[in-house]
Amino acid sequence: MLPTMITPHKPHPQHRGWRQRLLIGAAVLLAGLFLLVPIIVIFQQAFAKGWAGWWHAVSQPETLYAVGLSLVVVAIVAPINAVYGLAVAWLITRFRFTGRRVLVALVEVPFSVSPIVAGVAYLMVYGSNGLFGPWLEAMDLKVMFAVPGIVLATLFVTSPFIARELLPLMELQGIDQEEASLSLGASGLKTFVRVTLPNIKWALYYGIILCVARSLGEFGAVSVVSGQIRGETNTLPLQIDLLYHDYDSSGAFAAASILTLLALISLVLKLVVEAHFEQTAKEDG
């Protein structure tokens, strides 16, 4: 038999038996009930009193502050993790050295650590009776129950996201192009910017989207280290929790609708990036 051509996956249309109809029906029903209902509930509750009600609930100063703080945290965390992810991927895919596999495992450690546990760990380092606590107090620096603590905890939780997207791709691409560029006299930096980055740009975007989505939504680790001070250290997810427990459910749902919208935007961006991924894969043959 001739080898079949490798084509991008597309299910072949078959005649629709009852079994197929049943399975598709079950999947659609389950996706609708389990995945779509929660989103619809959020928007339905958030807009129960119309646009005016939504805006009234969102425009509380504390909620607006929380939106701003969440965006600031993301703006700090995403670039730092992008640099780290690029460094990890370059190191692990471009060199072979002792301890390489251990390093890969260490990079993935935050995935298996419960965010609450991560929060406790940070408290033990920077809290008032933590390792650096007395020193920080003497220097009059506040890390825990302040913005730096929130940034650190978010960095911990999201650190593997970008590295994990880059690692398999860069391993697959190999170093031929970079070697060619260097042998033609380009500097290391120029090679990285002109050869490596264009090749991995979609994987990098993909990782950044995942990192941003998780940073915006991180709750467990941040709730331990933030101290939940209103209008000071409350990120948007924490503000939702606080409003909900204050029995201000319209405020909670309005705030939640902002995050849900951001989540939907990140899904759309992900689809766009995936489409580009597939296209470049096709162009490369």
Binding site: K10, P11, H12, P13, I24, A27, V28, A31, L35, L36, V37, P38, I39, V41, I42, L210, A213, L216, G217, E218, F219, G220, L236, P237, L238, I240, D241, Y244, A252, F253, A256, L259, T260, A263, L264, S266, L267, K270, L271
Partner: peptide, 26 residues
């Protein structure tokens, strides 16, 4: 292959994109 397959494929990732606190509230 059925109408809405791509949409279903996309919303499978929803739980990862949605903040956990929002998921819990919903």
């Amino acid at each position: 292959d059925f109408p809405g397959r791509r949409v279903m494929d996309a919303i499978i990732d929803l739980p990862f994109a949605m903040p956990t606190a929002v998921a819990g509230l919903a």
